[in-house]
Every structure is written in structure tokens, then in C-alpha cells.
Computed example of a mutant assay.
Amino acid sequence: MARADFYLIGKPRFREQPLLLVCELARKAVHAGQPLLVLASSAAQAEELDDLLWSFDPDEFLPHQIAGAEEDEDEVEVLIAPPEQSPPMRALVLNLRDEPVPPGFERVLEVVPADESARGPLRARWTHYKSLGLDVTKHDM
């Protein structure tokens, strides 16, 4: 059964830099051997995440790239897709965009901002995924 996991930002380091949580989730996916597709909300966010994945842990490299940059993107473990790119869906998708992920995944990860006023679209997505019959879970981070 497909599932949706919502990660609620709470810890100060994630409040200051929400993309650090994305890096942590990407690391978990790589360690679990699950190729991850990250749907970035903008080209600028894709670039920022690309830079952060190089530097967030000096002792570890997570293979990643931005979609459209090279030919062998099927092979890379973490593929970051800005809105103008539409690479093939993967089983594991991390969504940073405002709209729900279309079907085709086994598991979707949603990062919920610490700011209560920014959580409206996430509540709508929670309801949307539940209406599709997904198993929906919340994690406090």
C-alpha cells in the first residue's frame, strides 16, 4: 500500500534551515538503498539543495544531481527536479512543491514548515492523500 509521511519541523536547526531536514531524509533513503526523487519548488531551491548536499556532512558524500544536467540521471541515488524538469517518477519521492505528487510512487515524503500559517497547503495534501487511500503518518522532527 502506498504511503505518505509528513515531517513536521520543530528542532531549531531545521527551523533555521529546513533543507537540512531534506538532507537528513535523503541520507536515510541512500542508506536504505532507495533512490530518491526530490521535487523542488524552484530552480533556486534545487541549486540550494544541491549545494547543501555537498556540504551538510563533511564525512559523507550522497550521490546527487539536478535533473536535466546529465544523461545518467537514472543511476544517481538522489535526483533533484526543479519545476521545469519532469523526470520519471520513483518509488520514493520527497515533495517540496505546493501541489500533491501525482500517482506513481510507493511512498511520498512531505516536509511541513514550522510556521503555522504556512501549513494550510499541507493539510490539504494530507486530506488528498488520505482520499486516495494512502497510509498517512506524521513525524515530529
Rank of each mutant, 00 (worst) to 15 (best):
V38R: 05
Y7P: 07
A26F: 09
K28S: 15
P12K: 12
Q34A: 12
L37C: 14
S42N: 04
L20D: 11
A29N: 03
L25N: 04
L8H: 13
V22W: 04
R15K: 14
H31Q: 14
S42Y: 00
V38N: 06
I9Y: 11
L19A: 00
L21H: 10
R13H: 13
R13F: 14
R27A: 13
P35E: 09
V30G: 09
H31G: 12
K28V: 01
C23F: 05
A40E: 00
R27N: 05
K11N: 12
C23D: 02
Q34L: 14
S41G: 01
L19W: 00
L25I: 02
Q34F: 15
F6W: 10
F6E: 04
L25G: 11
S42M: 02
Q17E: 02
A26Q: 06
C23N: 06
K28P: 03
V38E: 03
L39N: 11
P18A: 00
A32K: 05
F6I: 01
A32R: 06
S41Q: 01
S41T: 03
E24H: 01
A32Y: 02
L36G: 13
R15Y: 15
R27Y: 14
F6L: 12
K28I: 06
E24Q: 02
A40V: 00
H31F: 15
E16K: 12
L21K: 12
S41Y: 00
Q34T: 09
Q17V: 04
F14K: 05
L21M: 06
L8I: 09
A32F: 08
D5L: 03
A32P: 02
L36F: 08
L19P: 01
A26I: 01
E24C: 00
F14Y: 03
F6Y: 09
Q34V: 12
G10E: 11
P18N: 07
A29C: 05
V22M: 07
